[in-house]
Nucleic acid binder design. Sequence first.
DNA 1: TCCAAATTCAATTGATCACTTGAATGAAAG
DNA 2: CTTTCATTCAAGTGATCAATTGAATTTGGA
Lengths: 228, 228
Amino acid sequence: MRGSESTTNTNPKRALYDSFAAVAQALAHGSRLELLEHVAQGERSVEALAAVAGLNFANASQHLLLLRRAGLVRSRRDGKRVLYRLSEPAVLDLLGAVRRIAESNVAEARDVIAGYFQARDSLEPVSRHELADRLRRKAVTLLDVRPSDEFALGHVAGAINIPLKELLRRLDDLPRGKEVVAYCRGAYCVLSFEAVALLRRKGFRARRFEAGYPEWRASGLPVRVGSP
Amino acid sequence: MRGSESTTNTNPKRALYDSFAAVAQALAHGSRLELLEHVAQGERSVEALAAVAGLNFANASQHLLLLRRAGLVRSRRDGKRVLYRLSEPAVLDLLGAVRRIAESNVAEARDVIAGYFQARDSLEPVSRHELADRLRRKAVTLLDVRPSDEFALGHVAGAINIPLKELLRRLDDLPRGKEVVAYCRGAYCVLSFEAVALLRRKGFRARRFEAGYPEWRASGLPVRVGSP
DNA sequence: TCCAAATTCAATTGATCACTTGAATGAAAG
DNA sequence: CTTTCATTCAAGTGATCAATTGAATTTGGA
């Protein structure tokens, strides 16, 4: 009788635990975690989120409603559309905490990281602090490899946008001298891993940023909105 | 087909999300969160954990196995018994992140906090930093109101142990001059709330510590093991 | 007012989870 | 070596969740 006690139980400790469990339950599905990562990039409609997460429309709507009931996202109506956004930046801390536990303790996660991600980038990623410092000194080319619409929703101040799909034919847009730091949606967003692997094959010095645009923004570091 | 894609899907992003979701799934039950809080006090047997969490034996064992598979706890055999402990202190960060999201975004959690916990202690709790500082200056009486066996498993250095059940008849053990800071298992452990309410009724100046023994220990602050 | 688009709701089916019971391990003690 | 005790495993039932489908709702425009 899962959770059925919670509504009738007057034990405050148990009631509180059940409400914490409801938050965890909302995170307990891969599709919702993927939707959350996309919601974290900026406010977008159900239709847009369904498309980027590879879900059908009604299914995405259901998942988003669950996330909203758990307090992880909020929505507002804008004309015909309903736009979803993160309820607060602390949601990124929660996602990061889940990620760190899985990285160090879940065999499946370690296998995927070793088998896919480390194969593309075995170097230490660039930390928030180091990136901010090198950006100030203009000692790095910062490359945002997300699609242009996501870049326009918000990006790290000083970044140039070359979506991964265009990277191979736009290599001339990158200065050859400086090291390139690539970032995208988060710590394990595949775009930046693929970008770094491609750039290295083409003779660039390239590394990844340890996190993504949402974490940068949540740290209070400078961002820009709009196309370049 | 919940999660069934994960095993056959070669998409690394989805596989990673599914493994993160498995961690969240392990947190998605009030009983497991309660077990985790008790495991965080120190290493204990399945039987002992079942008793303190108010679960029957087999049920507690099942929940603990789930927590272990998700990498949140580890177990070791000690003679006839199997002892469970947290896999790493970062699990406390994860629990804290869940708690903070629920506190600020889940209506049910806010209701319980306002209706039960704030009724017993409307004052700001004492922060880690402030408590460490005042302990060094001996400017506070630190009171551990957990049962004696938990105190013996580990406690904040300098604390005296009066279990909540004995507090009313052992008030004379507390010096009258200094402010009393009470703590127990964590941020919303009912013991310290009840203790503070009782002490105030009896004329003491009393506040709660913002967290509990596990968080204090995880912060690297001084602890002691054994009975006083 | 009526229609079209975006989203949510309602209902269905199959899968997974929670709790219980009884049997099966695995280590320790006689 | 058998017994005992702590724990885990296996299986069954009822509840909850995931994905899909079609209907209902809300808003903006014709």
